[in-house]
Design a protein around this nucleic acid. Structure first.
Lengths: 121, 121
DNA sequence: TGACTATTTAGTCAAACAGTCAAATAATGG
DNA sequence: CCATTATTTGACTGTTTGACTAAATAGTCA
């Protein structure tokens, strides 16, 4: 249907990879309320500032965040709000999947792995 | 705004992680044309069948694909077409970003790292 | 059953990554 | 300039991950 060049594929993969970390998603969630500095994000996430700074740097490099310096502190904010649309889409997929699994199987809301009973009698 | 439980965050991260690999994106792209068996996917991707089988297994476990066995060969197909919406959203983000960078800076279409000259007077 | 094919799994290796602490850098105020 | 505070970066560590080969499993057919 469409031959997609490998560099584009790699770019898209990189973008998704930025979103594939709970800590980074946590940061994005915090920043939904508005811009925030490194120290506070670190404190609220429960990690060291060094660690959070790395995550922020990565997300900025990927175009998700923007930096603003004021005095000695650095504030980060969302650069492209459409990431939230992505997250909601994924949440929707997951919810649909869980619902479906619950209907079919019985109803453990947690720890889904409905892959075993497929075609083995 | 919204306190999101960490397990949900981890689930979403896992979902994104599945999409964070060029090889897996390649597979998804192939499967857009219709279902396909392991060997052919492997051949078309240029990897070993063992490797591709692992990727397919992971994607199936995450709910992106479905399996169908016919004789000794196993066919995989898309379980949830909304992944393509996700990919297109990301492509849109990337394109917008590249355009913007090209306008501001000069116009290398490759190897973007427009992070140096931002706002420090 | 045994040969044959297709897929999956086990075991291994090297590269990438998240996390830490400590040192380096940047901005401000005495 | 020196001290202070906030952020970034360097060096290191344990874990994860994508790839491979080789062995195991599953299904078909003579």
């Amino acid at each position: 249907m469409e031959k997609i060049p490998p560099e584009i594929m790699a770019q898209v993969a990189s973008y998704f990879q930025v979103l594939s970390e709970p800590t980074r998603l946590h940061i994005l969630n915090l920043l939904q309320e508005g811009e925030c500095n490194v120290g506070e994000i670190a404190q609220r996430c429960g990690y060291t500032a060094a660690n959070i700074s790395r995550h922020l740097s990565l997300m900025t490099k990927q175009g998700l965040l923007e930096r603003r310096r004021q005095g000695t502190t650095v504030y980060y904010r969302i650069a492209d709000p459409s990431v939230y649309a992505l997250c909601e889409l994924v949440c929707g997929n997951l919810a649909r999947r869980l619902l479906q699994a619950a209907q079919v199987s019985g109803g453990w809301p947690q720890d889904a792995s409905p892959m075993e009973h497929q075609g083995e009698p």
